[in-house]
Amino acid sequence: MEDKQSKIQIGGSVGGPVTGGNIQGTSSSHVGGDVSFAINELPASSEPDKPGIKELLIELEAAISADPNLSEDDRNDALEQVKDLAEAAKNPNDGRMKEKAKKAGRMLGRIISGIPTAAQLVEACSKLLPLITKVFGF
């Protein structure tokens, strides 16, 4: 007796509820989304005229994302460090989180220092990193 069930053909394109039917994008868009999510979990500053860690990290993420002089790899690495800072900021007094934040700050400094043409980003980091690391007590 012959099986009359439908056969599944492998190939074609993905359709349906998958974001517009296409699975595309760069790794930086994925990293950027993770960073934004981690930052958005932080509370907003309680002082309207003084930015808190959330606002500082938003500004840093924007500076990294907007800098045209960063390579894709450097941008992804820098955004990963911002994500680590955001995760550490959820519990800034925890020893492991302090170490995570310290490492992320050092890594960002190294990434930025290796890119002399990223003047706006260097300026932003020079202003923002000391304020961000102050939250962790160093």
Rank of each mutant, 00 (worst) to 15 (best):
A38I: 04
K134A: 13
A86S: 10
Q9N: 12
S71E: 14
L79K: 11
F136Q: 01
A63G: 06
T19H: 05
E41A: 07
F138P: 03
A86F: 01
I112N: 01
N69E: 13
G16A: 10
I23N: 06
L60D: 05
K100T: 15
A62K: 15
N22Q: 13
D73S: 15
D49C: 08
E123V: 10
D34H: 03
L57W: 05
P17F: 09
S28Q: 09
N69H: 14
V14P: 00
K54I: 10
I132K: 02
E99G: 00
E41S: 07
A62H: 13
A118L: 09
L70T: 08
G15H: 07
V122F: 01
K7N: 01
P130D: 03
Q9G: 00
G20D: 12
E55S: 10
Q24E: 14
L79H: 07
M1T: 14
D94V: 11
G33I: 05
A78G: 07
E2R: 14
L70S: 08
E87N: 13
K127I: 14
V122C: 00
A101I: 11
T26E: 10
I39C: 01
N93F: 12
S6H: 08
N76R: 14
K98D: 02
R110C: 04
G114C: 08
A38W: 03
